[in-house]
């Protein structure tokens, strides 16, 4: 029984992936390139060498966390697309706190900054959950608009109140200082964010799969009316999933600060939040699958440069592939239950 539905998921996901690859192949063929060569380069750029694998994992780290931002509320039946905003808010909060911690022992300061970023992102998306539950505000529109607000607030801060005028290339905030930055995983050039992402996915997977809370959220996501009838605390569950999801994206913002940039600037707004939506959907809201899908998508992004150099494909080509994947997955979702071979024998 379970094997059958598992096989169905695998078959449909594979078919969606294949469909997207065929469409993207047609796209590159239209530009006069050989699809097979492009895919070979894509694989090489993503997983072909140790260097490219490191690039891929570096790209994947924030995607795991922003993927959770959509995946967790989705378990409760909410479509949250506010990962981008939560990441920015988490990053800005990290800088605000981090800039005051100059003399602190680094481990303590980093822990404090992580909590700050997570708390900020959690409150950001949690607010959308609260508006949804108590005011009936559509959470999708709400979180989308919150993204714009978050980015606008950051732009305001980094061009004024917290601007560091020593930074001349573009407006940027105060820096948290080299001393509080966390480095790379031992023996690699992949920063510690990857570990944060994997651990966060494992923890939330355990939460959703094995706890009474996860069970209750599955009821809520499956059928609100059944959850109401069972007397489950729906408001609290909506808030909790939104908070934890937002906290994950906020933590991604912290990672971007403490592991990559050291300060807040428009470099935080590079689409990790939106790519996270795709990650969550491809993973079918399963936190464990988020890890692997994030690596897959990280690989696609990481190989963008190679495609550009070797084939003259525009930078947006990987975005086209990502978009096609998303469409193929959504189309694939309509196929569940359509194929006889996956149906259990009649009782």
């Amino acid at each position: 029984m379970l094997a059958r539905s598992g096989a169905e998921t695998a078959a449909i996901s594979a078919a969606a992936l294949l469909g997207a690859l065929v469409l993207f192949g047609a796209f590159v063929a239209l530009r006069g390139l050989s699809p097979l060569e492009v895919y070979a380069a894509l694989f090489l750029g993503a997983f072909g060498t140790w260097f490219s694998i490191e690039q891929t994992l570096t790209q994947a780290a924030p995607l795991m966390l922003t993927g959770l931002c959509t995946a967790l509320p989705a378990r409760a039946g909410l479509l949250v697309i506010g990962g981008e905003g939560a990441l920015v808010v988490g990053g800005v909060a990290t800088v605000l706190v981090g800039a005051t911690l100059a003399g602190w022992p680094p481990p303590l300061a980093v822990a404090l900054m992580c909590m700050t970023g997570a708390l900020a992102g959690g409150l950001w998306i949690g607010a959308a959950g609260a508006l949804r539950h108590w005011r009936g505000v559509n959470e999708t529109i709400c979180t989308l608009l919150l993204n714009y607000i978050a980015i606008a607030v950051m732009n305001h801060l980094v061009t004024g109140p917290i601007r560091d005028f020593a930074q001349v290339l573009k407006p940027a905030s105060w820096s948290i200082g080299e001393r509080l930055m966390i480095g790379e995983l031992p023996g690699t050039s992949v920063h510690w964010g990857l570990a944060f992402g994997v651990v966060a996915c494992l923890l939330t997977w355990g939460l959703m799969r094995h706890t009474t809370f996860g069970f209750a959220v599955d009821i809520l996501g499956g059928n609100v009316r059944a959850a109401q009838m069972a007397g489950l605390p729906i408001g609290a569950m909506v808030l909790a999933t939104c908070f934890v999801g937002g906290a994950a994206a906020g933590l991604a913002g912290t990672i971007e600060i403490v592991a990559v940039h050291g300060f807040a600037s428009s470099s935080l707004v590079v689409g990790y939040g939106y790519a996270g939506i795709l990650v969550a959907f491809l993973a079918r809201q399963n936190p464990l699958a988020v890890v692997f899908v994030a690596i897959l998508l990280g690989g696609i992004s990481a190989s963008g440069g190679l495609l550009q150099r070797r084939f003259g494909l525009p930078d947006a080509a990987t975005l086209v592939l990502r978009g096609l994947l998303f469409v193929a997955v959504l189309a694939g979702n309509t196929l569940y239950g359509r194929f006889k071979i996956f149906r259990p024998p009649a009782a």
Partner: peptide
């Protein structure tokens, strides 16, 4: 199915 159950569970 509408009121009291989750069909995918």
């Amino acid at each position: 199915l509408r009121n009291a159950c989750v069909r995918t569970m």
